[in-house]
Nucleic acid binder design. Structure first.
Lengths: 195, 195, 195, 195
DNA sequence: TATGAATGAGCCTTCATTCAT
DNA sequence: GATGAATGAAGGCTCATTCAT
């Protein structure tokens, strides 16, 4: 009989509130007010304030990774896959800036929560990228001796920084426009020489 | 304010404490204990807990930028300048992991403090990189139509992600070893075609 | 209020729960779960949590006193009556230790509830004892100048302490075995000299 | 530098507050106000609210037992010792009714705190009484086959009940007046026959 | 009548900051 | 200047009670 939509409503409210003020500067009662419920109600669905953040993080990251996987599933060309990942990454940030803000900031907080608690979800995204890169190497499209792990982090870091600048900045431009140059530069950097 | 070393001692203690527990999970009394002084003494040098963080951030970022500027001052080749920046970035992270942890995490916090409070210092580092890239473009070493701002963020993001992974991870390898591949991939990505 | 058994079920559940955790450390929902009903249902039969305790107390004390009265009704000898009271007191404790625990502890709480709320029921038990003692005095079996009120409290206190020790202790012996020595010592203490 | 009188002041305030409202109906801030300090200050001296109660209990019980031991130390006659214990017990209750109320009520709470936490202090008082009774038996003043443990609990229970009635009642008489009859009845009950 | 999700007042505890010494 | 005891506002969480179903 417990409302199955409540947890989602609470998480969505939390995303907005945490994005606005940061996790530590948000009160549980703020999240409740934003969700249009009483503070006590939150504790019917989450044991602690921390759990809201961890759940939020896991859920969204899992969705995100699934979405990316789907988006590249039908594509054969590894290079094109990379282009799609970058485009999708920026598109998602643009459409969910509040979520982006929370994930990016709190992901870095690292401490407590994400060391372990969500290492799985984060590394899943890294795996998606790394898999594509390995695929490209095997297909001869990327440099044979490419250090995949390093390149993976570079691509993620590059996307993440563009996203962060946009999210924390004035957003006076379309982030999506950066997708093509980012992909191009990265791919040029990792491509096999004769390609 | 007789003792001119106190503020520095406090900041150094704060770096260690904040790196260990994060800003919000650190108490002012923790910083005091780490610095070997009484909690009240901190308030002779800093007005609030926040001010410790802001001061810390500004000071260290300023030092950092000056260091980087110096390191590339004597070098004419823009490509080599980039290689030096990457190498120095990783070297500094490796030598001051606690500081790195604080800067990286809190830089992302963005909110309150760094929106404005330290935008100047951060953007100074971006400027260093962007200047080198523009130099490279003018010299014909980098692509003529290179979107410098994007490339700047990409390089910073790539370095920052490598650094973050290393800092928050088990540190079971030398971060410096990543400098060469990172620089190489990036430079390949931004180089003028015939180079 | 259709179901006439519910209040009783709730009270019985409350006895077990309160005995286990104490009144203040028991939740209404604990009592509900123990009774196999929903928390809200309790409020169909009791106005507040306090009322459960007061009702429980009154009901059980009334039963208790009636039982004691019955047990000594057919006995003519006042001394034998005292022996029976002691034996019965210990027997009841032994058979209903959970109830005993609740009554003894909460009886002492005194505050709020029992100052007045249940003074009647408690004093009824004292009255039973006092009546027997007065009877014994009149019959010349007990000391003529016996301070009946004091003696009443002494006997009750003695029984109660034996019971408490047993209830809160490891219960590694039969409380009933103490009935004879307790009665004997008390009666020796209050008997008329020549008897 | 920490004020060595504060813990005592807090405990004394707690005694008054707990006596007035009971432990569970008292707020830490009530104790603070009664002590004339800020609520937070209490936590400089006690880790939790529970600790106040436990400390209070231990400290007072230890003092109490020491006082009783001293009072009978100079007396040779076991019977007279009993008389002194009873007189002192009532005198102390009369002089410190708030303390008495707290000890008596919370002693019965049994749960959590006093099962073990203070078993030592309580049993020390029982030991004092039991020792005197054994002494009396050996001296031939009390019945040879007297069940000392039972008699000990009886005497304690009798005194405690008189005290409780007085403390929780209207106190319209002097509790000390009950000392003589209580001692007399008890001693008559346990005395060797020919005495 | 029975349910249990929802409510929100209430309380313990923490900790940045102050200030008397 | 340096100290650290004291302050008290703030917030996470609990749980008795209500009420829509």
């Amino acid at each position: 009989m417990r409302d199955p939509d409540k947890p989602q409503q609470i998480i969505d409210a939390a995303i907005r509130v945490f994005a606005r003020n940061g996790y530590y500067n948000s009160r549980v009662s703020d999240v409740a007010r934003e969700a249009g419920i009483a503070a006590g109600t939150i504790y019917l669905y989450f044991k602690t304030k921390d759990e809201i953040l961890v759940t939020l993080f896991r859920e969204k990251m899992t969705e995100w990774v699934a979405l990316v996987r789907d988006a590249i599933a039908g594509e054969a060309d590894p290079l094109e896959k990379i282009r799609r990942i970058v485009a999708l990454h920026f598109k998602m940030i643009e459409e969910h800036p509040a979520l982006a803000e929370v994930l990016q900031v709190e992901l870095r907080q690292g401490h407590k929560f994400f060391r372990g608690a969500s290492a799985q979800e984060v590394s899943a995204y890294f795996d998606v990228i790394a898999d594509v890169l390995r695929e490209g190497v095997l297909a001869g499209r990327l440099r044979k001796e490419l250090p995949v792990k390093v390149a993976t982090k570079m691509l993620f870091g590059a996307m993440d920084q563009l996203a962060t600048s946009w999210v924390l900045g004035s957003r006076g431009y379309r982030l999506s426009e950066a997708a093509e140059p980012v992909a191009t530069i990265f791919l040029k950097g990792v491509c096999a020489d004769g390609v």
